[in-house]
């Protein structure tokens, strides 16, 4: 049932043409009216956009955010999905792991639609990115940069932006482990992981991001939103603050019956060493391991 509704929704979305606001190639919004209104419709297609992972540990979120948004861009053409090229440096891979296609599929991003390029040198991801952006048959290009390589300067990003404008391909530049650098990006976002809305039994919920508009050539910047990505709807949703109350994380414990000693024992033991066989009375079944 819900599957059918979900499909209908997708169909509806593809039937309604994306609105253009005087931009040559149109725009793609977040699906969140508040943000889209602020951006005057959404992110401009065929323009360079940048995301900064707030901290290195937020790189997965930054990837997820870009993949989710790219999925909105690639999914626009109902006749045939155009491929996305994703360029990563080996350096990023050793820091945050490899791109896992099943995980991308979990975000609604079809890995069969992805061409993945792995390069070693910063100069290479730039030239590969430029080459890909020039290929008119792509939906978008995600370029991940680690740190602030000197090759990735204002001129290089301007080159990317110009190539994109010419070809209609939307490039995303993902940056991490660096402060803000000068660039020709049309919008710049900071992406950080945010606590998700818990599901049943306090399970982690949908991917949730704190996004901050750091720069916006077409308007004001500095705004922040907390958004959730819903892969089944294919759109973002604003996250409400009350959703994010952190519950206590001991669902399985419950209160001990009064008067009875707790079962188990609480001992902090160094990893890989046996627990001393002491029948400590105050105990809970936790154990330090690993």
């Amino acid at each position: 049932m819900s599957q059918a509704i979900h499909q209908l929704r997708r169909q509806l979305e593809t039937l309604a043409p994306s609105q253009t606001y005087g931009l040559k190639h149109g725009q793609v919004g977040f699906g969140v009216s508040e943000i889209d209104a602020h951006l005057g419709g959404g992110l401009g297609l065929a323009m360079l956009h940048e995301t900064y992972a707030a901290e290195t540990a937020d790189m997965a979120s930054s990837s997820g955010f870009a993949a989710s948004f790219m999925q909105r861009i690639a999914g626009r053409d109902r006749r045939k999905k155009r491929p996305v090229v994703w360029i990563r440096q080996t350096m990023s891979e050793s820091e945050t792991g490899r791109l896992y296609p099943h995980g991308l599929a979990g975000l609604g991003f079809d890995p069969a639609n992805l061409i993945f390029v792995r390069v070693r040198q910063p100069i290479h991801f730039l030239s590969a990115g430029l080459e890909a952006v020039r290929c008119t048959s792509l939906a978008g290009v995600i370029i991940e940069a680690w740190g602030a390589p000197k090759e990735l300067d204002l001129t290089a990003t301007r080159r990317l932006a110009l190539a994109a404008e010419k070809s209609g391909v939307t490039p995303f530049l993902l940056r991490a482990a660096t402060d803000e650098q000068p660039s020709a990006a049309f919008t710049r976002w900071q992406v950080a992981s945010a606590p998700s809305r818990a599901l049943e039994a306090n399970a982690p919920g949908h991917p949730t991001f704190d996004i901050t508009l750091l720069r916006n050539k077409a308007g004001t910047h500095g705004q922040s939103w907390r958004v959730e990505w819903h892969h089944d709807l294919g759109q973002f949703q604003l996250s409400k603050p009350e959703w994010n109350r952190v519950q206590s994380v001991r669902p399985r414990l419950g209160k001990p019956a009064p008067g009875k000693p707790l079962s188990g024992r609480v001992v902090s033991v160094p990893a890989r060493q046996p627990v001393a066989a002491s029948g400590s009375p105050t105990a809970s079944p936790f154990k330090r391991t690993g």
Binding site: S2, M59, G97, R98, G103, L104, G106, R252, T289, G290
Partner: peptide
């Protein structure tokens, strides 16, 4: 893709070699 309404159950980044951590967990 996961069921509608469910969050992704697999990670977007995966380490080639799992990385050891020190954890405190219930037995």
């Amino acid at each position: 893709a996961p069921e509608p309404g469910e969050p992704p159950n697999l990670p977007v980044h995966m380490f080639e070699h799992p990385q050891r951590i020190e954890a405190l967990a219930e037995i």
